[in-house]
Design a protein around this nucleic acid. Sequence first.
DNA 1: TTTAAAATATGATAATTGTCATGTTATGTG
DNA 2: CACATAACATGACAATTATCATATTTTAAA
Lengths: 225, 225
Amino acid sequence: MTRCDHCIARQLSAMKSMTKEELKLVSDCKTTRFFKKGDVIFEEGEALNGVFCVRDGVAKLTKLNANGKDQTVKLLGRGDMIGQRSVISNERTNLSAVALNDIELCYVPRDQIVNPLQKNQEFSFDVLQNFAKDLKNSEDDLVNMAQKSVKQRIAETLLYVHRTFGVDANGYLSVVLSREDYASIVGTATESTIRILSQFKKDGFISTEGKLIKIENLEKLRQVE
Amino acid sequence: MTRCDHCIARQLSAMKSMTKEELKLVSDCKTTRFFKKGDVIFEEGEALNGVFCVRDGVAKLTKLNANGKDQTVKLLGRGDMIGQRSVISNERTNLSAVALNDIELCYVPRDQIVNPLQKNQEFSFDVLQNFAKDLKNSEDDLVNMAQKSVKQRIAETLLYVHRTFGVDANGYLSVVLSREDYASIVGTATESTIRILSQFKKDGFISTEGKLIKIENLEKLRQVE
DNA sequence: TTTAAAATATGATAATTGTCATGTTATGTG
DNA sequence: CACATAACATGACAATTATCATATTTTAAA
């Protein structure tokens, strides 16, 4: 079994401030899980008795609204933790997690997270700082959602995916999302997303190859109004 | 000077898990500040070297967007803490705080919050749980903003204000917000807000008396589509 | 490889929301 | 009280976005 202290995810997550002993416990208890593209990792309303840590791959957190539509709340990549909140507040999760491509997760039981949280000040302060950052991002997202046009939100999502997950050898966004995925992130109809992406193509801001998207002009995308 | 251990705000905030000694320090260091309706408590971009705790009154947290419009991110009432995040992440605040009516705040210097956070496990876990709750709310807000109509968002805001801050002796919402305030919360034009509130009046969902709003039919407001 | 299903694309049209103009009503200040 | 200012209200119109219909293309499975 892979040891946690070598895991690349550790470099990126709050777990970097766990002690060697704590990390050893995590290492011993954790189980590694693989999910295929499209697999549901957990469903809204489930009780999570542990935390997932993304070792490799990308997942989305979604929330079902009253009309039966999914809203994507967050994308998660390497080093991100899933389910910390539910574990800390001891509530069922209010989000579903779905794999966007093949993904490898470590599942760490609740106790191995909560115990260090209650004993290791550095770790708990780190998690607190992560939460503070998440909250700030969340506020920014809210303002964007409230005040920007669909076109702007799509442009920003493309830039976000580019910035966060990078590009493949040919310059295409390495995370491949369907038009419906993009629609679910910006909170609009799939048709609107398709139309706007087509427009971006005509404008030369992006190019596509099947489902792959390449950003051709970062600056123009930033200036979309 | 009023002692913190008698403060009603303490019953509601994470400070309830501070030790007597910690609370004594807070009590000795804190300063009480009064703001009048409309006063700016602090501005986006300021460095906050402490935390505000709402003793009485209501404030809003707003964020300026690129077009110069304010988005209201959160309303704060008795027992709510303002500025914890900036203090914890050691960053300048990304929000402004404005008094919505006459308000009394306690200002607690940074150290009196951060030191207990680094020493008192119970307190820091409590703050963590508060953050977890805030994050969940924030996600819910995002989904609402993304997927509900302006009309629904206004109806929900009325219900929220009713639920959170209650009504006066005559049944009017005890927090009095301008149409512009409501617009800034739901992220729409002031005129749209005025129109929709007029419609709600015609429909008999609410009644008004000057700026005062009374909810006449909770159930109908909940069912708005 | 064939074929069904899913994803993408686009037109037509409706619904929602924003913007600008303009008038009325409250509110507060000298 | 008078007056200036801000808040509220409403019409007319424009812009954005959603919805429905219908092709076309891509993908995946038999």
